[in-house]
Amino acid sequence: MNIDIRTKLLISAIFSGMALVYQKIDYLLIILLFNILTLALFKIRIKLLLCIKKLLYMSVIMIVLQSMFVRTGHPLLKPGGICLLTDDGIIYGAAIFLRFIILILSGLFVLNSNISELTRGLVKLGMPFEIAFMIQLGARFIPVFFEEMGEILNSVQLRGVDMRKIYKRKVIKVYVSIFSPIIYSVWDKAEKLAILLELRGFRTNPARTYYREVCFKKIDYVIMILYVLWAAVFVGITLVR
């Protein structure tokens, strides 16, 4: 289903907002379910399981941290008198984990669209073009940044450095040395890009025109009304309960 980017932004804002407002696991599970259904409805292919698998380690850390700082609940794991795991801690940790997933999926829902379309949508919503363009460039450079980082890391290992076998202090030293060329490369790219943009007449005329315009269709209005209604009903039901 081809919908306007602003409709996608609204849906994403609804899910993200609700994920931040609600704390109870049952509510968050319902929001997550609707979030996944939305992704399926708009045929957005995301390696969801892979995404959750990567976050699982983080969820364990979150649960332990929550248990350490949440003083309520029954202790489930108490080695040496230090409370490491409580039932309340598990519930809070799980809630934060669900929130993370909802926020990530909502973000992916928008980022799955054409990035130029997103810029045009943001400009239509009143954002200055320069800032929207910066967001567009940022999104385009993230994969390049990771690719370069991987390339440098490979190059370090190909010169005989076994990251798995060296001491942690040395690993940190290697990572620090890897970051310097990456930061330099990002800086260099930004500088060259700024020059290129100037050379191509960026911001010479304030009245910028667009080859492709974004416009709402009937389906956008229907979807927006449906999602706002769903959010209102959900909020209403939870308030009554």
Binding site: E148, E151, I152, N154, S155, V156, Q157, L158, R159, G160, V161, D162, R164, S177, I178, S180, P181, S185
Partner: peptide, 24 residues
């Protein structure tokens, strides 16, 4: 083989030299 083991046998020079420089 791990990458460091390959690196000990094969010396690989990438097309883009900037991706192979990381020292001060």
């Amino acid at each position: 083989y791990s990458l460091p083991e390959i690196g000990r046998k094969l010396g690989f020079v990438l097309q883009n030299p900037s991706h192979m420089l990381f020292n001060t």
